[in-house]
Design a protein around this nucleic acid. Sequence first.
DNA 1: CACGTTCTGTACCAAGCGGTAAGCTGACTC
DNA 2: GAGTCAGCTTACCGCTTGGTACAGAACGTG
Lengths: 200, 200
Amino acid sequence: MSTIGRPRAFDEEAVLDRAVEVFWRHGYEGASLSVLTGAMGINRPSLYATFGSKEQLFQRAFARYHETQVAAARAALDQPSAYASIEAFLRSSADGLTAADHPAGCLSIQGGLACSPENAGISKILAAGRAATESALAERLSRAVDEGDLPDDTDVPALARFVMALSEGHAVHAAAGASREELQASVDIALRAVGTLHRP
Amino acid sequence: MSTIGRPRAFDEEAVLDRAVEVFWRHGYEGASLSVLTGAMGINRPSLYATFGSKEQLFQRAFARYHETQVAAARAALDQPSAYASIEAFLRSSADGLTAADHPAGCLSIQGGLACSPENAGISKILAAGRAATESALAERLSRAVDEGDLPDDTDVPALARFVMALSEGHAVHAAAGASREELQASVDIALRAVGTLHRP
DNA sequence: CACGTTCTGTACCAAGCGGTAAGCTGACTC
DNA sequence: GAGTCAGCTTACCGCTTGGTACAGAACGTG
């Protein structure tokens, strides 16, 4: 914008990344402003001047989470076959859910599946994010049907839901301490189901 | 206990059921004492005299949830084959997650996957409950291996984890509004994977 | 009937919550 | 170097949180 006035003493994206981590670890309601500002290294008024409110900060954080984390899983859908896309999606999810450089699990679920009545909007935002990912999955699978890669009578929404639900369950497991190998072994089993779909 | 003194004006199990529903809908931290006492129809001091603290109330509520809800899914494991047990487990879970007489989803997950630091114990209690169900599943599958129903080289823990993770994912979906039929269609796909295990 | 006992209702507590007003600090322009 | 504007710091706001002290009400017992 402008260079007049005292320059900002922090990098907006950097402090946003710290906020992502706090929300990820403690959820929306569990992340108090004191913990947030402590982790972000800025004071309350700076937070409010920059992001507006706790809820707006969360939305920014959630958007950034999608850019930096969910994008990888979505990119995995660029595989030549439906099977390969699902495998890549599930494997990269499992990797992301158990990566060492950030909290275990998934912000879309840790963030606040259940909230107090006044924060019900947060649950909706998270659900919308998950639904968008599921839609991307369904679109990829629909293309596979068009290309003859999957049978015409494939229940595409159900298959997308199955894959997404498994990934969400893995997120729950990861948050409880499951290892990467444990999740990948579960993926192995899921892929057996997908394998049966290719040969009608 | 004793009949001396003023008799209690409420039924302990009845008010506990109301507490279960509030925790289920709003999670541990999202369920304030005001909302809890309002739904339970008792005053704060009665709640504390009867249950001790909010956390102890939650533990009682979670135990009751297991008795009344999770027990059905566990009972589904009493089927003659591993396939039938898994199918019954997943189908009864899907039914329970979308029943009309209580909130959608699962208290074990809605309750508080992520919490503020001082309530981290709640997440652990919930995780332990889920782990217990997964163990019951694994035990049933292990028996199936012993009986020759599943191949000797079956990765039993992974299969149990797969089934449990899918069920948890369905809980996430149900909380976001998924219908019973949508979940059952996802179960249909999962069962394809299980079907391939029976014929080695 | 008065007693001890136990529950209920009101009214309250300290602490933490999300959010903000006001003044100081620092970097730029003129 | 004075003026200006944005950001930082401190201290505070009203409100809600989980939890409790205290007095009154309802019972069984002497």
